[in-house]
């Protein structure tokens, strides 16, 4: 992906290039590119005045950030306790089996990234799967195929 220096600079300026806003800046960059491109991190380091090693430290510490480009559709399987006892891990395994990737990875065609979350806080409708921000309630192993198909050609 092309990283536009201007665009990244605008995001940094929005937070007045403050060191304390490092996480917020990275969140905005991630929202723009769906991951943290290397060039953008270098730029942040220079403009904010935080050594690159510390920028990477923050970027790798927090779960929300990804250093790898993500797929067109992001599938997030909830693995909170309530979803766990209702079969969340089996849903994840079924996604892994059908998509042919492990959790955290992206399919070769770049269509799907499979991720997990520790709890979305809507335990009543578990097991929950979120695709591109859309909630799929009370999923089951059997529904996994249909969910994938729904986004395959979008």
């Amino acid at each position: 992906m092309d990283v536009q220096t201007d665009r990244v600079n605008a995001l940094i300026r929005k937070h007045k290039s403050e060191k304390k806003a490092l996480i917020a800046i990275l969140q905005d960059i991630q929202a723009e590119y769906s991951y943290l491109p290397k060039e953008a991190l270098q730029q942040v380091s220079r403009s904010v005045g935080v050594p690159l090693i510390d920028v990477i430290g923050v970027a790798t510490f927090y779960r929300a950030f990804s250093l790898k480009p993500r797929g067109k559709h992001v599938v997030t399987v909830c693995l909170g306790t309530a979803c766990h006892v209702r079969g969340g891990p089996k849903i994840l395994e079924e996604f892994e089996r059908r998509l042919g990737v492990a959790s955290g990875d992206t399919t070769e065609d770049g269509k799907f990234t499979l991720e997990t979350v520790a709890c979305l806080g809507c335990c009543a409708i578990g097991p929950v799967v979120v695709v591109d921000g859309e909630y799929h309630a009370q999923t089951s192993i059997r529904k996994v195929e249909a969910i994938i198909k729904q986004y395959l050609n979008k």
Binding site: L79, G80, T81, C119, C123
Partner: peptide, 8 residues
């Protein structure tokens, strides 16, 4: 930052 899984 409600992090406990299962609490909402």
């Amino acid at each position: 930052d409600e992090g406990d899984p299962g609490a909402y």
